[in-house]
Amino acid sequence: MWMYILAVTAAVLSLLVGISTGSLSIPFSSIVRILAAEWFGAALPRHIPADWVPIVMAIRLPRVVLAFLVGASLALAGAAFQGLLKNALADPYTLGVSSGASVGAVLVIFLGWQWPFFGTFTLPVVSILFGMATLAAVLAFTRAVERRMSVETIILAGIIFGAFFSAFISLMIALTGEELRQIISWLMGSVAMRGWKYSGLLLPFFLVGAAVLIANSRELNAFAFGEAAALHVGVDVTRRKVIILTAAALLTGAAVSVSGTIGFVGLVVPHMVRLVCGPNYRVLLPLSLLYGGAFLVLADVAARTIIEPRELPIGVITALIGAPLFAVLFFRKMKRKMG
């Protein structure tokens, strides 16, 4: 129980820090008052300047919420992939779905598409459509190769599709002129200047994906002992595998389509949670969700404050903070095990 309280506290604190930090620093108490006033109609105290309200509500809140949802989605997907594929190096991008989503996004920038009605929102929509098409293709290919859909086949199929789509992206980068900067910065990932619409696009995928994965905690635990063991205790192996893969891939595709390919969160957050709380998915999934979200919110804070007023790519920051943090945890865990 204490583990959940700690994680929820960390998540709430990270959100407050994310809203509070910026060129204009806003104290926590004021943030709480503003939120109370906006959501529950409480009176706004005199001492809070009125122009803080749009800064919190229209600029910072959507940004931290998006960062949180993206981080949570990637960490959940990473945890699921690592367990299902029984591969510590698996991350949300293993299956190639992110590459597919990226092709969609880069294509939109490359061709300068702006669909009527969608406007700038064309990019995430095209991206997620590409992501889902990729997932369908990978699963269909795996099934065609082998009806049982073994883990090895899935990983290989993901690598094949991923490499193919990466080549497409490189091709577009090579052919483009004007849009190079835009493409590269999208690929490195960002949650800046997105507004509520992007969170709105991600939210349904997040809710469904998270619920499906958490509902499959016991199956994921069984898969951790190998496919044969899962079968022996009565798991409908192929069906569950497709369900879990689909949920995790949708989380990934949706996250990539709204924020680009932010690395490291999905790989390392589940590992860090595992080091502290053990491998049981009933605990691992909710905690990965909370810590993944908190981690990305804080990474975003660092990305926009380190060399203010310029912003660094968030994908760079996740690795810059994440790698040393992981190294310390890993080192201490191994020492305790050996000593």
Partner: peptide, 16 residues
């Protein structure tokens, strides 16, 4: 059986 690092005896048997 494939090793599943980190699982306790209880968690392993509970899968049954």
């Amino acid at each position: 059986a494939e090793a599943a690092p980190g699982y306790t005896v209880r968690e392993t048997v509970a899968l049954g």
